[in-house]
C-alpha cells in the first residue's frame, strides 16, 4: 500500500501557524513522525490561508527534505504552486491533483511527464462531484485515456473516485468502493486507485472508526494508495492486517512489527 501522510496541511491550525512563522521544527517533526509510522510519501499543502503559496510551497519542500527522504505529494489546485515544489523535489514526486477537465489535464499531464512524477487524477470536473458510480468511471476513463494518448505511463497514474462525507452523502460510499474495483479495468497495466480517506468521516462523531472501516472495505475492493493520517495506529494496524488477509504479506506472529520494519 502506498501511504501518503496527510498531516502537513496549512488547513490544520498548528501547521498553518508554523508556515506563517516559518517554524521548521513543527513541520520536520510532523514529517519524521509520519514516515516512522509508515508513510511512503508526504502530502504538502500550504492551506487556504497562505498569502504566498508559491514561496510557502518552496519553503515546505525544502524544510521537509531536510528531515526525511521520501516522495512528496504536492497538493494544490494551482499548477504554479505544484511546479514550484516539483522544481525542488529530490525524489519522484506526486502531483496532487488534476481533474478531468481538458485544459487542466493537458497542463498537469505535461508537467508530470516533464518532471517524471506520479499523477493523481480526481474523477470530477467543472460540473462537480459525481453522484453515482458510472459518472466516476467515465471521468476516470477520460483521465486514463488522456494520459495514455499523451504517453504518460499509466502505472504512475492514481485515480481518485472522490470520497464524500458519510453524514451528507451516505449513498456515495458504495459508489466509491465499486468505482475502485472498475478503475483497475480501465487500462493495462492497470492504473492505481487512491482515496483521500479522512473526508469520509468529516463532521462525524466517530471519525477514526469510520475512516478505518472505509479504508479496509476499499482495500478489499483493490485500493492501492491512500492519503491518510499514519499516526492513527489502529488505522495502520487494520491496514496491515487487511494486507495480510489478502495474502500481500507473509504471516508471522509479529506481523505488525514486521511490516513496520520495512
Amino acid at each position: 500500500m502506498f501511504i501518503i501522510g496527510e498531516l502537513i496541511n496549512g488547513m490544520y491550525k498548528q501547521v498553518g501557524k508554523a508556515i506563517a512563522e516559518k517554524n521548521k521544527k513543527v513541520i520536520q517533526d510532523l514529517a519524521r513522525k509520519q514516515v516512522e509510522a509508515g508513510a511512503s510519501a508526504l502530502d504538502v499543502n500550504c492551506g487556504p490561508l497562505s498569502k504566498n503559496p508559491v514561496s510557502d510551497m518552496q519553503w515546505l519542500v525544502e524544510t521537509i527534505q531536510e528531515s526525511v527522504d521520501v516522495s512528496l505529494s504536492l497538493d494544490s489546485t494551482k499548477a504554479e504552486v505544484i511546479e514550484a515544489g516539483l522544481k525542488l523535489a529530490k525524489k519522484k514526486a506526486v502531483i496532487n491533483s488534476t481533474t478531468a477537465d481538458q485544459e487542466k489535464l493537458e497542463k498537469l499531464i505535461g508537467m508530470a511527464k516533464q518532471y517524471k512524477t506520479y499523477l493523481i487524477g480526481l474523477s470530477l470536473d467543472k460540473k462537480g462531484v459525481p453522484q453515482d458510480k458510472d459518472r466516476r468511471i467515465e471521468l476516470a476513463a477520460t483521465i486514463a485515456a488522456a494520459a495514455q494518448d499523451d504517453g504518460f505511463p499509466v502505472e504512475d497514474l492514481f485515480l481518485d473516485p472522490v470520497v464524500l462525507p458519510v453524514n451528507v452523502a451516505q449513498s456515495q460510499g458504495i459508489n466509491v468502493i465499486e468505482a475502485i474495483r472498475e478503475f483497475k479495468l480501465l487500462a493495462s497495466p492497470p492504473p492505481r486507485a487512491i482515496v483521500g480517506l479522512s473526508n469520509v468521516s468529516q463532521g462525524t462523531c466517530e471519525r477514526n472508526l469510520i475512516n478505518r472501516i472505509f479504508l479496509i472495505m476499499s482495500v478489499g475492493a483493490g485500493l492501492d494508495a491512500a492519503i491518510l493520517d499514519p499516526l492513527d495506529k489502529e488505522l495502520m494496524n487494520s491496514l496491515i492486517t487487511a494486507e495480510l488477509i489478502l495474502n500481500k504479506q507473509i504471516y508471522c506472529d509479529s506481523f505488525l512489527n514486521a511490516y513496520r520494519k520495512k
Binding site: 507473509i250 504471516y251 508471522c252 506472529d253 509479529s254 512489527n257 514486521a258 520494519k261
Partner: peptide
C-alpha cells in the same frame, strides 16, 4: 515453515 522463518528473523534482528 516460512512463517517461522520470518518470525525468527524479526526476533534476531530485534
Amino acid at each position: 515453515d516460512i512463517n517461522i522463518a520470518k518470525q525468527l528473523n524479526i526476533l534476531i534482528s530485534d
